[in-house]
Write a protein that binds this DNA or RNA. Structure first.
Length: 774
RNA sequence: UCGGGGGUCGUCUAAUGGCAAGACCUCGGCCUUUGGCGCCGAUAAUUGGGGUUCGAAUCCCUGCCCCCGAGCCA
């Protein structure tokens, strides 16, 4: 799992560092202190602090404490502790948004002075109603045109506490008709007569997130401000605030916001309110219930911080909404624990075994390694073997089913590191339940090997009845029965798994006492456990199961039959069919929605230049594009070709940088198309030429001349190159001849690379196929 | 409906115009003093349609589906 993880954010950072935008990076983890951290936050913590580590930058821990009504110090304490536990150090970089209140206030005054903010005195309902909807524009407030002086005075009075909650707000003056709801004069400040746990009663106006956050980032010289996807729509305001508050010279190094998908996990929930409900309604034992995805819960359960970090790194960072399977988390956990957890034995549901031919009162101390072969670690302990033992109830069957190779009447098994034993008799109580087993052991098999090479099918774990330490075991299962408990109309609590906690009592081998109380063990054949940090005592050991061992024997509930798989396949096929129908039912053509004048242009292109209807419409519907097109024709009169290359090459760039801001002139583009159409350059080299044109604004002919990109259509020149490539890749040639025709693309790519893209592709392909086929 | 974002094996993630790859899950096998670990193998994907190109998951057009946005929350 040590893949060299990259992601789109690292791509951005690499770019920013390479082009000198920033000298080094600064990230931040900005929790609001109004809840406990969960594994979703851990993703963000690991991302932000991890990036800072990797790039030798720094990461700030900043509390976004702009709403005193919901936040408190206990959360601050807990969050700090959790981030530290996760293994990250913010050093001196601990910050609070509330410490910047004075600066925010000054920025707000600046906006007012610049006519970009005003005090609105509508009430909450009016503001909401006048905001409009996604389909209707909002209406400007009556107070929108107050003078700067009036606004300044009012705002000052708001701060002075002259007004009650809700009487006034400060709003940015942007655009009440914007299709971005966020830009319809967003609120910057509201009046809250509330005690702030850090600022006391100093303030009765508090900034909104959208105003405060970008400024916090800027104040701290944050470079990359990472947040989750739902803030995507806020970014336009983030940028507005910075561009309108900062000094021009500060803008080049200002922070930028990037969004990534939040973490979702199957069989659990991550929402603050829902988590809170579970706690408040006593459906779990508290915020640190080991079944919860909270860091506190995971920690109490015994999940090491390193495993959480590893998990967070393994899932990647993208912009696609995703739900990671719990089994993946469990895999990472086991993978980690496998190397750090010494093995010992514990019997969680004991069945007594009496070894009838073993002397009463005798203890035989056998040796057992802490580590299996595959873990490169040393160490072992002595395990007491006695006449009376416990084995796991599940490890015995009176009537063993097929494939069961544990203990059964008359059968011999190995007791791990002990002896081979054979079940001679099943002793039952009056109720007909199995009371205990009578077995005999083979003294020749001490340690678990038979001198004659005999090898029983099963190996069982066991604990001496005389020496075993009684213990309670808490086995945790998934909190919800459903992979997606939040879907469906019913309340999510209805999906709670009644079997999420099983408490059983059994025995642990005495060596457990020789270990630190926070040691994580693998109880062989059961799972990974550790002592509950709060409740376990020397007199009453309580073990929490961190994660069970993978079990490939017990019947799985979720596995599907062949028929079900087939059924699914059919359903998918059907769904594809329906999708096809829906898609074609809605099909449109680009010429369907042209305005009057565009329609005229379109018609002219079709009639006069015989353009393809689609290309004609695409160019005609954009005035910049049609202007560019017609000018390009003055340099090269082949209209179809110009149109085609415009649509297929220029359009992608035009979306970012409109054609009239590009360095490429229409005449240059015309000349460029001519070079392609007349075979002066290959379509492959055309890409490079175009990139160069975009960057330098040079004439295509100059670029081609300079870089020697003229197309090579001479067989004599191409053949040696191709021969060499084939000779260098004999394995690929063989695979191609064996039928892997897709490799032609590989060879084409090689030739193109070798020739700087100048090879005539058709000709190359022809020669290539010829050579490969004999 | 308007604006924004997204859509690659069941799941998560690669492939930055050139061999659709890896991991988890599932299934088979090998190995085994843990029915663990490990190893080998199998199943399995580019959202539909059209276009550009020698070559498209990637570029263009056009649908379909999903998520976010109308808090004085963050």
């Amino acid at each position: 799992m040590n893949t060299q993880n990259s992601n789109f954010i690292k791509g951005i950072i690499d770019r920013d560092l390479a082009d000198g935008t920033y000298k080094s990076i600064v990230t931040r983890f900005p929790p609001e202190p109004n809840g406990y951290l969960h594994i979703g936050h851990a993703k963000s913590v690991v991302l932000n602090f991890g990036l800072a580590e990797e790039y030798n930058g720094r990461c700030h821990l900043r509390f976004d404490d702009t709403n005193p009504e919901t936040e408190n110090e206990e959360y601050i304490r807990s969050i700090k502790e959790t981030v530290a536990w996760l293994g990250f150090d913010w050093g001196e970089h601990l910050y609070f948004a509330s410490a910047y209140f004075e600066q925010f206030y000054k920025y707000a005054q600046k906006l007012i002075k610049d006519g970009k903010a005003y005090v609105d005195s509508q009430n909450e309902t009016e503001i909401r109603e006048n905001r409009g909807t996604v389909n209707e524009p909002g209406k400007p407030s009556l107070y929108r045109n107050r003078t700067v002086e009036e606004n300044l005075a009012l705002f000052h009075e708001m701060r002075e506490g002259k007004y009650r909650n809700g009487e006034h707000v400060l709003r940015a003056r942007i655009d009440m008709a914007s299709p971005h709801m966020i830009l319809r004069d967003p609120l910057l400040y509201r009046i809250k007569h509330a005690y702030h746990y850090l600022q006391g009663d100093d303030w009765c106006i508090y900034p909104m997130y959208d105003f405060a956050h970008p400024l916090e980032d800027a104040i701290e010289d944050v470079t990359h401000s990472l947040c989750t996807l739902e803030f995507d729509t806020n970014r336009v305001l983030y940028d507005w605030v910075l561009e309108n508050c900062l000094k021009p010279e500060e803008l080049p190094t200002r922070p930028h916001q990037y969004e990534f998908a939040r973490l979702n996990l199957t069989y659990t929930i991550m929402g603050k309110r829902k988590l809170l409900r579970l706690v408040n309604e006593n459906l779990v034992t508290g915020w640190d219930d080991p079944r919860l995805p909270t860091i506190a819960g995971l920690r109490k359960r015994g999940v090491p911080a390193a495993a959480i970090r590893e998990f967070c790194r393994s899932i990647g960072v993208t912009r696609t909404e995703s739900t990671v399977e719990m089994s993946h988390f469990e895999h990472v956990l086991r993978d980690h624990l496998n190397f750090i957890a010494p093995r010992i034995n514990a019997v969680t549901e004991p069945l007594k075994v009496v070894i009838t031919n073993f002397p009463e009162g005798k203890t035989d101390w056998v040796e057992g390694s802490y580590w299996p072969r595959d873990v490169d670690k040393e160490g072992s302990r002595k395990i007491p073997f006695t006449r009376e033992l416990y084995i796991e109830r599940d490890d015995f069957r009176e009537n063993p089913p097929d494939g069961f190779y544990r203990l059964a009447p008359g059968r011999e098994v190995r007791l791990r590191y002990g002896y081979f034993v054979t079940c001679e008799k099943v002793v039952k109580n009056d109720a007909g339940e199995i009371d205990y087993l009578e077995c005999t052991y083979d003294p020749e098999t001490r340690g678990g090997d038979a001198p004659n090479g005999r090898n029983p099918g099963g190996t069982l774990h066991w604990v001496s009845a005389m020496h075993g330490v009684p213990a309670e075991f808490r086995e945790y299962n998934r909190l919800f029965k459903s992979a997606d408990p939040e879907s469906g109309d019913e309340d999510f609590t209805e999906h709670l798994n009644p079997g999420s906690l099983t408490v059983v009592r059994g025995y642990v081998e005495p060596d457990v006492r020789e270990h630190p109380t926070d040691e994580r063990f693998q109880f062989e054949r059961i799972g990974y456990f550790w002592q509950d940090p709060d409740e376990s005592t020397p007199d009453h050991l309580i073990f929490n199961q961190i994660v069970p061992l993978r079990d490939t024997w017990t019947e799985k509930e979720g596995t599907e039959s062949q028929a079900e798989i087939e059924q699914k396949r059919r359903e998918r096929e059907l769904e594809k069919q329906r999708q096809r129908e829906r898609s074609s039912a809605g099909d449109r053509y680009p010429w369907e929605d042209l305005s009057g004048s565009q329609r005229v242009t379109f018609q002219r292109y079709v009639d006069e230049y015989s353009l393809d209807r689609e290309n004609a419409a695409i160019i005609a519907r954009d005035d910049d594009l049609s202007g560019f097109f017609e000018e390009a024709l003055t340099a090269y009169e082949n209209a179809s070709a110009v149109a085609k290359w415009m649509v297929n090459k220029l359009l992608a760039v035009h979306k970012e940088t409109p054609v009239n801001q590009m360095k490429v002139s229409p005449e240059q583009f015309g000349a460029y198309v001519e070079m392609i159409s007349t075979d002066v350059i290959s379509t492959r080299a055309a890409d490079d030429v175009f990139d160069e044109m975009l960057e330098t604004g040079d004439d295509p002919s100059d670029i081609v001349e300079r870089e020697g990109l003229q197309q090579v259509s001479d067989e004599g020149a191409l053949e040696p190159v191709i021969e060499k490539i084939l000779a260098d890749n004999p394995d690929k040639v063989e695979r191609y001849r064996d039928g892997q025709k897709g490799l032609l693309g590989f060879f084409m790519g090689q030739v193109m690379r070798e020739t700087g893209g100048t090879a005539n592709p058709e000709l190359t392909k022809e020669i290539l196929s010829q050579m490969l086929n004999n």
